[in-house]
Structure formats: C-alpha cells, structure tokens
Design a protein around this nucleic acid. Structure first.
Lengths: 188, 188
DNA sequence: ATAAAAGATTAAGATAGTTTAAGAGACTAT
DNA sequence: ATAGTCTCTTAAACTATCTTAATCTTTTAT
C-alpha cells in the first residue's frame, strides 16, 4: 500500500518517512464501490474524506423541487468530500455518488484530527490542498458570474477533458447551472 | 503591536509564544491606505497577503469590455489578496481597492514562506483559514448556480450586514453577477 | 456653494434561459 | 428479445435578465 497513488499524491507536497506512511495506512480504509452507489447522502453527517484511487465521483445538491446542482466531479488522484459537513460535522448539503466502479480510500474525521497531531507536516499538505481548492472555486465563481454559458461550457471541456468523457451532458448542465435542453441548444 | 487585531485573529486557531509573535511582527508591514486606492492592479504580480485591521476592501475583475465582477469584500478582521496570483506568483486576475480609509497589515510572499519554516504551527492556521475559505466559495458557487437573484440578494444581506451597509448596490450587483438595473428592479 | 461625476430608479425592447412536450437513440433489466 | 428507463435533441411559449436611455438623487471636487 505504501506505493499506492495516495502516497504519491501526498508526497507531491511533503516528504513522508516510512513510519509516517505506516501511521497513515493504519487509519486509511480502502473500499471498492460499484457504479452509481452513494457514499454520502445529503442530510447525513459526513465522517469521511475520500481519495479516488480509481474511478470517479460526483458531488451534488438537490433542492426541494428535486433539481440537482453538481458542485464537483472527482477523478483518479483527486480528494473529495462534502467539506462543509466534514469540517463542521453538520448535516451534509451534498450527496456523493460514484459515476463508475471506483476504488476509494477514506480518512475518518477523528483519525485525521489525530494524524494532524502525530504528523504536523500533514497540516502543510492540507494547507496547500485547500489553498488550491480555494483558488479553483474562486475562479469558478468568477466564471459563473461573468461569462456566458457557451464560454463556460467550452472552458469546462478544455479544462476537464477526462471528466467530459465520463459524464452525461445532463450532469455538465447541472455543473454549469443550466438546463440540459439549453446546454444542448448552446452546443450548436 | 502584540495585542493588535491580527494576533487575536491568528490566536483564534493556534497559540503563539511572545517570541513567535515577535518573528511575525518583524515581517508584517502596517500601512494606512486612503479611500478608493488600489493596493493591487489586475495584471501585476501580487506579492502581499493583506489583513484588514480597520476599514474595508473590494477585490474585482474587469473583463475586456470593462465590466467589473466583484469576487470578494473584506472588512475588519478579514484576510484578503488575489490568492491565485499570490500563491502562484503569476499576473493578478483581480484588483484590490479600499472602500474607505483603511489600516492594513501586509505579509510578503517570501517572508510568509520563511515563516512557515520558522513557525510550522502557521501551516495549521492557514490550513484552517483556507479550509473555511474553500467551504465559503463552494457554498457561493452553489448559490450562484441554483438560486434566483432575488434569493441570493436576500441571503447576501442576511449573511453580510456589515458589508451591505458599506458598499453601493452597483458593487453588490457585480458580486451577484447581475446588472445594477436588474438588482434595483428585483428589490421591489 | 456650485458644478460635475457617480449611483439609483424606471421603462421599453432585445437576448438568454426555462418549461413543457414530443420523438429518436442508447442502456438495463427481466 | 422486449419493454422500460434514461439521454439527447428540437421547438414553441414563457420568464428572467440585459441593454439602452432618460430622470432623479447623492457624493465628490473645486
């Protein structure tokens, strides 16, 4: 397990000793999840942070009228969770669902808190991870409030070709915040 | 300086010794900036992270047609910068402008990198800061793609009453991504 | 105190996006 | 294999939002 994707991911930003990798391995859980299964249901408290070893997921919110809004996609080598629910341990605003058969590592909330104490370097890793996530979301807000749907669709496809090939147009539409019918008409 | 707002802010999440506060003070710069002055111009490389000791600022992007989109406001006790430009040391997408006479602390990019080495606890502080920023932006994306303008305006006013009282409707409109004319009509 | 500039409101006509509905193609389960 | 479900497309009617422009109010600069 010490040479798996997840350690390569962490070691992009910090160095880990063999012992530190062991401590992390000890609390990581690895699970194979079939396609279209939800690992988190909106309303539940999210106890896990997920790392996508293989496969892909979608995080989305459903409003009272049942309209879905996709907040993020995650493919291999990405971290994903309902971060609001995870860090505050409050009911999730999002559901997390696999788009295909996937292999996921999960890190428990309390185990992660203990890892931060045991391996302070991890604070640095997650500082950098959240920093990038913050910048990414801020750019997405800018796109959402300043660009046309046509433009945003083109940029999505250019930025995330791996995702574009895995998801339906309906799901991309719900990521852009438009109806599938309108996205279909925009594509021409 | 050791009892100023900025240390109270940092000490919300981590404890600092007197010596550590001194190290930080040594690289902090404090400046009074008059109203409507830009501390960062879009296109420049952003070298500073700002903390608002008093006053308020706005971060915004201008597109080719000159249309402004407000990415964030910052009031007393908030941190602000063009985080994309700051962490990547690339040309800024945003301008930063004071909304009123303000007193700002600034932390230089390289000085902060050195502080992370000297005071590893700061990694934890910024990990928590970015974690909250990420969650905030993700919720803003959800609002932007799933709610009506009327709803988003009401939520903005409810969430940021201090900001609402300081900024023009034009600026709120540019934060919501609608024209001032439409925001005006929505308010009735 | 006055003039100039910027912000807010209103309204008419244009464009962007939604809703509903229908039909064609693809996948899923029995 | 067949029916059933889901996706994608198209179109018409409707609603939300933008553009432009005029008027009024507030702020800023001399």
């Amino acid at each position: 397990m010490n040479d798996s994707q997840i350690f390569l991911n962490i070691q992009k930003h910090i160095d880990l000793t063999a012992e530190e990798r062991d401590w992390i391995s000890a609390v990581l859980e690895l699970r194979d999840i079939p396609k279209k299964e939800r690992v988190l249901e909106q309303g539940q408290i999210c106890r896990k942070l997920y790392f996508v070893e293989s496969g892909s997921l979608r995080a989305y919110n459903s409003n009272k009228q049942g309209k879905e809004s996709t907040i993020m996609f995650a493919v291999q080598d990405w971290w994903i969770t309902d971060m609001y629910s995870f860090v505050n341990q409050k009911p999730a605003l999002l559901s997390l669902e696999t788009l295909e058969d996937s292999r996921l590592y999960s890190l428990d909330f309390l185990a992660l808190e203990q890892l931060f104490t045991k391996i302070p370097k991890l604070e640095r890793f997650f500082r950098i991870l959240f920093q990038k996530a913050y910048v990414r979301e801020q750019l997405r807000v800018l796109d959402a409030i300043s660009r046309t749907t046509e433009d945003r669709y083109a940029r999505f496809v250019a930025k995330y070709p791996q995702i574009t090939s895995k998801v339906t147009q309906k799901q991309i539409a719900s990521y852009l915040g438009v109806t599938p019918e309108f996205l279909s008409s925009v594509k021409k």
